Simulated assay, not measured.
Amino acid sequence: MRTAIALLMKFAATFAASWAAFSLIDLNPIGMITLVAAAGTILNYLLGDLVILPSMGSVTASIGDGVLGAAAAYVIDMFSYNFNASASGLIVFAAIIAAAEYFFHIYLISDEKVAPNNFHREPPME
């Protein structure tokens, strides 16, 4: 249950970043902003939180999450007629995601009941 709540918090933060970057800067429709937020949340959880965070640490995972979120938005831009992402929108989106993910990782590491709860079994590569 706590993992679902954590994922909802992650989606809310990603949606806020997506709205700020792609609605206020690039004037995209809310449906496409929601799609970008959902794609970013899923990719960042699967790759950033489950793979990169336990092995490389929070800072590397946060930067990777920002880049991965921007890459997902760029791919959606390439394959969609209804979504346009400018370079400034992608940079703002990546920066907001990276900052939010850093604090989200602090929460993930500190809460034992949120999956995955096997953080820091191996020392992070630094």
Rank of each mutant, 00 (worst) to 15 (best):
S55C: 11
A95H: 04
A95S: 15
K10Y: 09
K10E: 12
F103N: 07
I25V: 15
A72L: 03
G31F: 01
V75E: 08
L50M: 11
A4D: 01
A95D: 03
L35D: 02
T41P: 00
I52S: 01
A61W: 02
D26E: 06
V59H: 09
K10T: 15
F93D: 05
F15Y: 12
I63L: 14
D77L: 06
A73S: 03
L24H: 09
L24V: 11
V67E: 00
V51T: 13
D111Y: 09
Y107C: 02
N82H: 14
T41E: 00
K10N: 12
G69W: 00
M9R: 06
L46K: 05
D77S: 13
P54S: 07
I5M: 13
A21I: 03
P123V: 10
V59S: 10
G69T: 00
M1I: 09
D65A: 13
V51N: 07
G57N: 02
L68H: 01
E101P: 04
H105D: 01
K113V: 14
L46D: 08
A94N: 04
S18F: 07
K113T: 15
W19Y: 12
A99I: 14
L68T: 05
A70F: 00
L46G: 05
S62M: 02
S23L: 09
E101G: 07
K113G: 05
V51F: 15
L50F: 09
A61D: 04
V92W: 05
I97G: 01
A17K: 02
A61S: 15
N84M: 13
A61V: 01
V67F: 09
P54T: 01
D26S: 08
R2L: 11
Y81N: 14
L46I: 07
A70S: 07
F11G: 02
F79K: 03
F79H: 06
V75R: 01
Y107F: 15
V51M: 10
F79R: 10
L43T: 11
I42Y: 06
M1L: 09
N118S: 10
A95P: 05
A16Q: 07
A73R: 01
